[in-house]
């Protein structure tokens, strides 16, 4: 069995500087399946990413497709590359990031196999567990496909070490340019705080924050804790914060050591994104709020008094 993992990468400014943390979790899932693990790095100007991928513990080969047509990993161009490579593999895995979710179903359909989305555990090389219904049920699914195409929920697997491996680099793949799509531009949110999905502490605000300006209370608490800041859909829809901060079924899935929900009622869709956190703290003035049903520690209080006090005491 040989497994192909599609790498996501970190981009700083215009440069691709390393492998995304979610790729380390995906390699961990591949190790659970067992077999040789190869990583595909597709993009343009990805030499540093390929070098970083080669150092990941447990990776035996890194395939590098460095070509202008793979810039921004447009699925119309990257999917045929993966399809071309896939015939030699038993499994093709990608992290369930925006990028992985965008590309992999296209690959699966071209291979004429079903895809299994967002696995949270590996039972055997063909059997996996995945949450359905916003995490209110866990399905165990078995695939008889010759090539198993899978996206991996990063929070389900502990990351492998980013250092310690010494995989060989191999450049691969003809340039596939479908000529159907092009990159126009991007608007990336800038943040000095830890990345939401990888942070060990997350502080999130909801509608109870009342406005975007009040999020400054959460930012200063987060900075003191070294935490990332998240939000509920209500806070995003109300324009308090940008949408890439949304935690939930349709936003990001997090499972930090500590999740502090401030002014968040705890709708099913929000819980889907954070209920696997180790410790959940809820601060809400409504003692009937559903969030208290999943919180390890609940504090019924006005957040505008509790949050500054909390910041002082931690």
């Amino acid at each position: 069995m040989t497994i192909l993992v599609i790498a996501d990468y970190v981009t700083e400014g215009q440069a691709h500087t390393g492998v995304a943390p979610s790729t380390l979790n995906t390699v961990a899932a591949a190790q659970k399946i067992g077999g040789d693990i190869h990583v595909l790095v597709a993009g343009t100007g990805v030499a540093a990413v390929a070098e970083a991928a080669a150092k990941i513990a447990g990776v035996s080969k890194v395939l590098v497709a460095d070509n202008a047509v793979y810039a921004h990993q447009l699925p119309e161009n990257v999917a045929p590359l993966i399809v071309e490579l896939a015939s030699g593999y038993s499994h093709v895995l990608a992290a369930a990031t925006a990028n992985g979710k965008n590309i992999l179903p296209r690959v699966a359909a071209q291979l004429d196999v079903d895809q299994i989305s967002e696995i949270v555990s590996v039972e055997s090389p063909d059997t996996f567990k995945r949450p359905i219904y916003a995490g209110n049920a866990i399905a165990t699914v078995q695939s008889s496909a010759a090539i198993k195409v899978i996206t991996v929920r990063a929070t389900g697997f502990d990351a492998v070490a980013a250092e310690g491996g010494s995989a060989a680099l191999e450049s691969v793949g003809a340039a596939h340019d479908a000529g159907k799509s092009s990159f126009v531009g991007e608007e990336l949110a800038k943040s000095d705080r830890p990345e939401l999905t990888a942070a060990s502490i997350v502080v999130s605000g909801g509608r109870g924050m009342q406005n975007g300006d009040n999020f400054k209370h959460l930012y200063s608490l987060a900075d003191k804790l070294g935490a990332a800041v998240g939000a509920s859909r209500a806070a995003v829809d109300a324009g308090f914060v940008p949408n890439d901060m949304q935690v939930g079924q349709t936003g990001k899935i997090v499972a930090p050591q500590l999740y502090i929900a401030v002014g968040i009622s705890g709708a099913i869709q929000h819980l889907a994104g954070m209920k696997d956190s180790k410790v959940i703290v809820a601060i809400n003035k409504d003692e009937e709020a559903p969030i208290f049903q999943v919180a390890d520690y609940g504090l019924v209080a006005d957040l505008f008094e509790a949050v500054p006090e909390l910041e002082k005491l931690v």
């Binding site: 359905i132 209110n136 049920a137 399905a139 165990t140 078995q142 695939s143 209920k275």
Partner: peptide, 16 residues
């Protein structure tokens, strides 16, 4: 090519 073997309730969090 995919078969659902079983569907379970998620692990329940202990009361806080």
């Amino acid at each position: 090519t995919v078969k659902t073997l079983k569907v379970e309730a998620p692990a329940v969090r202990s009361a806080g």
